[in-house]
């Protein structure tokens, strides 16, 4: 079981990384979602095998599932949900301002490219 899950984690990370490296903001957002899901799944895998829930007074300590990874994943999901919502709002704002979904070039890079172009023009 856990080998399949590990494979899923690997695929999520690979696909997520690929998408984050894209120029379209919407793809970056989806890529970040995939990567954080991969991380969440990895935390789930760090717990014990499926077992009965731990309830004080009702279950035996040796026979219950480890509740800690589940609690952590729940927290992590809530956090990544909130940040993804913020990121989507930001991407929308960027789209409304620039009219395109692509990440803009860095202003400094543009400036340096301009200087380079001028120098080439001068030498030609």
């Amino acid at each position: 079981m856990s080998l399949i899950s590990l494979g899923v984690v690997a695929v999520l990370f690979a696909a997520g990384t690929y998408l984050i490296l894209q120029r379209m903001l919407s793809r970056v957002v989806i890529g970040l979602g995939l990567v954080s899901h991969g991380a969440n799944l990895l935390i789930m895998l760090s717990g014990t095998r499926p077992a009965p829930p731990p309830v004080i007074g009702k279950s035996q300590v040796a026979a219950v599932a480890d509740p800690l990874p589940q609690a952590m994943v729940l927290t992590a999901i809530v956090i990544s949900f909130g940040v993804t919502a913020f990121l989507l709002a930001l991407a929308l704002r960027s789209y409304l301002l620039t009219g395109s979904d692509a990440v803009e070039d860095d202003l400094e890079d543009l400036r340096i490219r301009g200087i380079e172009g001028e120098e080439k023009g001068a030498s030609a």
Partner: peptide, 23 residues
């Protein structure tokens, strides 16, 4: 945008550390 994306990637890696350390 770039600040958020970079920090989110780092945070995801932080979760990976948490998982590995716990394992």
């Amino acid at each position: 945008m770039s600040y958020v994306v970079i920090n989110l990637v780092a945070s995801a890696l932080f979760l990976v550390i948490v998982a590995f350390v716990y394992m």
